[in-house]
Each structure stands twice: as C-alpha cells, then as structure tokens.
C-alpha cells in the first residue's frame, strides 16, 4: 500500500495505491489523523489505484467523516472501481460519504 499526500488550494488530497485492509489501515489512519491535526479540513481521497478495501478501511473513513463534520470540514472520495464502490453502497456509507467519478469533480464538490 502506498499513500501519497499533497495540498492544493487548501484541499488535502490522499491518493491510495494498493490494498486498504486490516494491515495497511493503521498507516492511513495515522496519516489522515495527522493531516487533520495540522489543520486539514477539506480532504479528497483519490481511489483510482485502490484495488481492495475491507471494513478496516471503512472504519478509518467513518472516523474521518465524523471528525471533519464536527470541525465543519468535508471529505469526498473519487475515481473508484465499481466493485469497490459497491462495498460502500452495501455498507450504507454512500449516504454520508460523497463518491464522485473523478478528481476534477471531487475538487469542485469539496468546496460546495
């Protein structure tokens, strides 16, 4: 699992590459928590190269969405494989986590 992080016009973009499972989720948790502690409020998670996710990965996104809501921030996910998206839908996560088709749309959505 590789996690790339960059900041662009006040938006923090995480790009996930590989598998977000029980073993790799703690690293993502740590990075996203650190970003929020350093002031990140608008977070985009680019899932274009995310091959796999389990409930351990969903746990981090759930926790992040809760935290950002309290801080008047926002999280948007983008560029997801259909079968990865299905996991979010079955879990009912698509009702509170916006999932958009591409990064460009995510960057537009996040400030709305």
């Amino acid at each position: 699992m590789e996690i790339f992080e960059k900041r662009e016009n006040g938006i923090t973009i995480f790009s996930l590459n590989g598998r977000l499972d029980s073993n790799t989720s703690p690293e993502f948790d740590e990075k996203i928590t650190k970003a929020i502690e350093s002031g990140a409020r608008f977070i985009v998670v680019d899932c274009q190269n995310l091959d796999y996710i389990t409930s351990a990965g969903l746990r981090i996104l759930n926790k992040t969405a809760k935290k950002l809501k309290q801080l008047n921030g926002k999280i948007v996910l983008c560029s997801m494989e259909d079968y990865v998206k299905e996991v979010f839908e079955i879990s009912g996560f698509d009702t509170f986590l916006p999932i958009v088709p591409d990064l460009e749309t995510a960057l537009e959505q996040i400030k709305k």
Binding site: T54, S55, L58, R59, N62, A65, K66, K69, V87, I90, S91, G92, F93, T95, F96
Partner: peptide, 18 residues
C-alpha cells in the same frame, strides 16, 4: 444500522454484513 447520520454509525458488524 445502514441509514442513520454519520455520528451514529458504528463499524461493528459491518464485516459480517458484507
């Protein structure tokens, strides 16, 4: 619970549900 607001969502049981 698959429908409540984010504040009330819990992760427990989600794996088995999937």
């Amino acid at each position: 619970d698959l429908k409540g607001p984010v504040e009330k969502r819990k992760i427990g049981g989600l794996g088995i549900h999937l």
